[in-house]
Simulated assay, not measured.
Amino acid sequence: MIEWGYSTTFPNERAAKLLAPSTIGTIANRIAAEMEITCCHFQTCHDHSDFGRVVYCIRVSEDLFDLFFNSPHGYRGAYYRSRGEGINANAVFISTLAPKLIARSAPGASMEELTRIRESLSSLSAKSWLAENALGLCPECEGEWGNPTDFCADIINGRWEHGDSGPQCSGRKAPQLTKIRIFGAFLDDRNNEFIPRRKRNRAQDIHSFGWS
Rank of each mutant, 00 (worst) to 15 (best):
A126E: 07
Y75I: 03
L137E: 01
L121W: 09
K179P: 09
I94C: 09
N192C: 01
I182K: 08
R181L: 14
L135S: 07
S170P: 00
G74Y: 10
L121D: 07
K127P: 00
E142V: 06
R118E: 14
L135E: 13
Y79W: 01
S120N: 04
L177M: 15
H162R: 10
P148D: 07
I155Q: 14
T149C: 08
R76T: 00
H162E: 12
S170Q: 11
Y80T: 01
G136V: 06
R81I: 05
L121T: 09
E140H: 11
N191Y: 15
P99M: 07
R181A: 08
Q168E: 14
W145A: 14
G171L: 09
K173L: 10
A134V: 01
Y80W: 03
F93D: 10
S105D: 09
K173W: 04
R172Y: 12
E193W: 01
Y80R: 08
N157G: 14
A109L: 13
N157C: 14
K173P: 15
S120R: 06
R181M: 14
E161R: 08
A174P: 11
L130Y: 09
F93N: 07
I155T: 11
W129K: 11
E119Y: 02
F151E: 11
F186Y: 02
P99G: 02
E140D: 13
N191G: 00
Y75P: 03
F151V: 00
I180V: 15
E161S: 08
A106K: 15
I180L: 15
Q168T: 04
A174E: 05
S122Y: 11
S82F: 00
R118D: 14
A106Q: 15
V92I: 15
A134T: 01
L121G: 06
L97I: 02
G146S: 15
I102E: 12
E142D: 12
I117Q: 11
P148S: 10
L137Q: 00
R104Y: 12
N133M: 11
S170W: 10
G86V: 00
L130F: 10
E85N: 06
K127E: 11
L124P: 01
S125Q: 04
N191I: 01
L177A: 13
G86H: 01
R172D: 03
R83Q: 02
E85S: 06
N157Q: 12
E132F: 13
S125M: 08
P148Y: 03
A126N: 09
I102T: 09
P196K: 09
M111V: 12
I155H: 12
R116C: 01
K173G: 14
E161T: 11
G86W: 00
P148A: 03
L101I: 06
P107M: 05
A185H: 06
I195E: 10
